[in-house]
Design a binder for these strands. Structure first.
Length: 190
DNA sequence: ACGATGATGAAC
DNA sequence: TTCATCATCGTA
């Protein structure tokens, strides 16, 4: 099976290009000997200081600092006091943007193609917390992304408004910055 | 429909 | 230092 680790250059692009590209890619978590790979099925883009839904719209703060840094680093924060949100920072450098990982399929190998919908469930499943904040997405940190040959055509995904961002106002809350993989229909690349 | 639960940023 | 808010989720 082809396994291509997504490098910094993958993330050093506009966030609205990267977010749909992450559908069908794999998030890999290594804990001790165990290596868990899950397929990404749902993401959201948060795009710069203009985007009122993006935390960086408040400006540069201790929390949002990592989003202003280089692409390919994790931005992780606690939401509602109990759920860790996993984001990966995107480029270009100095421009604060990130992709929130909202949904996965934990295991494709078995016939159990159960989906895990919800960013809090993703981090719970993979045992991700603030320890990963500001760390790069690389195997040596224990958390990274891979292309494993799953091809996602535009027909197989949809764009919708983001979840839980009504506070962002009528313009930004309606932007279709959420990308969802439809069904279980995926195809292997040759 | 609602409460759990704590970091965050802004106001004072 | 206090306060409202929150990129959610399980239970009802």
């Amino acid at each position: 099976m082809k396994r291509q680790i997504l490098k910094a250059d993958f993330f050093n692009r506009p966030v609205l290009r990267i977010a749909p590209d992450l559908l069908g890619k794999f998030l890999v978590r290594k804990k001790g000997r165990r290596e868990i790979a899950v397929m990404i099925t749902e993401v959201e883009a948060y795009d710069g200081t203009e985007d009122k839904a993006c935390h960086a719209s408040k400006g540069r703060t201790p929390r949002t600092e990592v989003m202003f840094g280089p692409a390919g680093y994790f931005y992780i924060y606690l939401c509602y006091g109990m759920y860790w949100m996993l984001n990966v920072v995107t480029g270009p450098k100095g421009y604060p943007a990130a992709v929130l990982i909202r949904g996965i399929i934990p295991n494709l190998r078995t016939s159990d193609v159960r989906r895990l919908n919800g960013p809090g469930k993703v981090t719970k499943e993979l045992k991700i917390d603030k320890r990963f904040n500001a760390l790069p997405a690389r195997p040596d940190t224990g958390l990274w992304f891979e292309d494993r040959g799953v091809m996602v055509e535009e027909k197989n995904s949809k764009k919708t408004p983001r979840i839980g961002v009504s506070y962002a106002g009528p313009v930004w809350s309606k932007k279709k910055y959420r990308f969802v993989l439809l069904g279980e229909s995926t195809k292997k690349r040759t």
